[in-house]
C-alpha cells in the first residue's frame, strides 16, 4: 500500500507556470516509464491564480506486511468527531514529530550522567573551536610554546619585566625557600638564581621585533624560498617563517619576514603591501606585539 512519492534526488516536481492562460485544465497525464516509475503531469491553478504544471515521478513499491485483521479494519474506519470527513494521514495541527531522543538503557544509570554528558562534551568542543589560539610572541595561530620565534623573541612585555622583578626581589633576604614574609619566590627570580638561571640564548639572539613584517593572505602553495626571494630585494632578510599546516604541509596563509635593518623592513612593507602573489594580494604590516 505504501506508495513512495518523490524519491530523493528528484526536484523537478514544480515547474514554471506557462504563459498561455487557457482556462481549460487538462486531465492529469500518466505515462509509465521503462524503469518502472510513473510520470504524472498535472496542470492546476495555484493559490495565486497562476497556472502551474507539475510533473511528478512516482515509484511504487509494494510492501507486504501481516497485520491483525481487527487492526486493519480499524485503520479503514471513517474519522469522526472533530476529524469527521478528513483525509487519511496525520494532520500537522494535531500531530508533530519531536526531536530525536537517544534512549539506550545502561546498567548503573545515574541521573544527569548519561544524558547530560553528551551536551557538555559538545560545549567543550565548541568552546575549543571558538577559542582562537594566538601566540604571544608572533600573534600566529599556534601555541606560544610552538612558536618558531620562541628562542629568539620574548613575549611582549617580558623584556621590561626582569628589571622590575629584580628591584622587587632585590630587597628580599637572600635565596631561601619562602624566606622572609614574601611567600614563595620561584627559583629563577631568587637573588642567587638570577645569576645562574640565565635564559638560554636570551637577549643575544633576540630578534629585532621592529624589523619583522607580518605577511598575510599568502597563497597556500607558497614556499619559504619564494617569499625570501621577493623580500630580499629590499634588504638583508635574516629570517623567513611561513606557517604551514602540520598534516598537509600547505601554507596556512601567513608568514613572518625579518630584516636586519628596520629601514629595509619599512621599505619592504610599503612596497609589498598589496603585491600580487599567486592568485592573492599580499597584505604586509609590521608584526605587532601581542597584547
Amino acid at each position: 500500500m505504501a506508495a513512495v512519492q518523490n524519491p530523493p534526488g528528484r526536484t523537478d516536481w514544480a515547474e514554471e507556470s506557462e504563459p498561455d492562460l487557457a482556462t481549460a485544465i487538462p486531465p492529469p497525464q500518466i505515462t509509465k516509464n521503462k524503469d518502472g516509475t510513473e510520470t504524472i503531469v498535472t496542470v492546476f491553478i495555484n493559490e495565486d491564480g497562476k497556472r502551474v504544471k507539475r510533473t511528478q515521478r512516482i515509484k511504487k513499491t509494494i510492501v507486504k506486511k501481516k497485520e491483525n485483521p481487527r487492526v486493519a479494519e480499524r485503520k479503514s474506519w471513517p474519522k469522526m468527531g472533530q476529524e469527521t470527513g478528513r483525509e487519511m494521514g496525520p494532520r500537522p495541527d494535531t500531530t508533530t514529530l519531536g526531536e530525536n531522543i537517544i534512549f539506550k538503557p545502561v546498567i548503573g544509570f545515574k541521573s544527569g550522567q548519561q544524558q547530560e554528558k553528551a551536551p557538555e562534551e559538545d560545549k567543550k568542543a565548541e568552546a575549543l573551536k571558538k577559542m582562537q589560539i594566538k601566540c604571544r610572541i608572533c600573534s600566529g595561530d599556534h601555541f606560544t610554546t610552538k612558536c618558531p620565534f620562541k628562542d629568539t623573541m620574548a613575549p611582549e612585555g617580558e623584556a621590561a619585566q626582569p628589571a622590575d622583578m629584580d628591584a622587587v626581589t632585590g630587597g628580599e633576604a637572600a635565596g631561601g625557600l619562602g624566606a622572609g614574609g614574601g611567600g614563595y619566590v620561584p627559583p629563577h627570580l631568587r637573588k642567587g638564581g638570577a645569576a645562574t638561571g640565565e635564559r638560554m640564548g636570551g637577549g643575544k639572539f633576540e630578534r629585532d621585533d621592529l624589523a619583522t613584517l607580518r605577511v598575510t593572505n599568502v597563497s597556500e602553495f607558497a614556499e619559504e624560498g619564494d617569499l625570501r626571494e621577493m623580500f630580499a630585494r629590499f634588504g638583508h632578510v635574516t629570517r623567513v617563517f611561513l606557517a604551514k599546516d602540520r598534516e598537509t604541509q600547505k601554507a596556512k596563509g601567513f608568514a613572518f619576514v625579518s630584516y636586519a635593518d628596520r629601514s629595509d623592513a619599512q621599505v619592504a612593507c610599503e612596497r609589498m603591501d598589496g603585491y600580487g602573489f599567486g592568485h592573492l594580494i599580499l597584505r604586509v604590516e609590521f608584526a605587532k606585539k601581542s597584547t
Binding site: 485503520k75 469522526m80 472533530q82 476529524e83 469527521t84 494521514g89 496525520p90 494535531t94
Partner: peptide
C-alpha cells in the same frame, strides 16, 4: 474532550 489516535503515525482518529 476524549481523543482517539492511531499509535503508528499519531494521526487523530476522532474525538468524543
Amino acid at each position: 474532550v476524549v481523543c482517539a489516535w492511531y499509535s503508528a503515525n499519531g494521526e487523530r482518529f476522532g474525538t468524543y
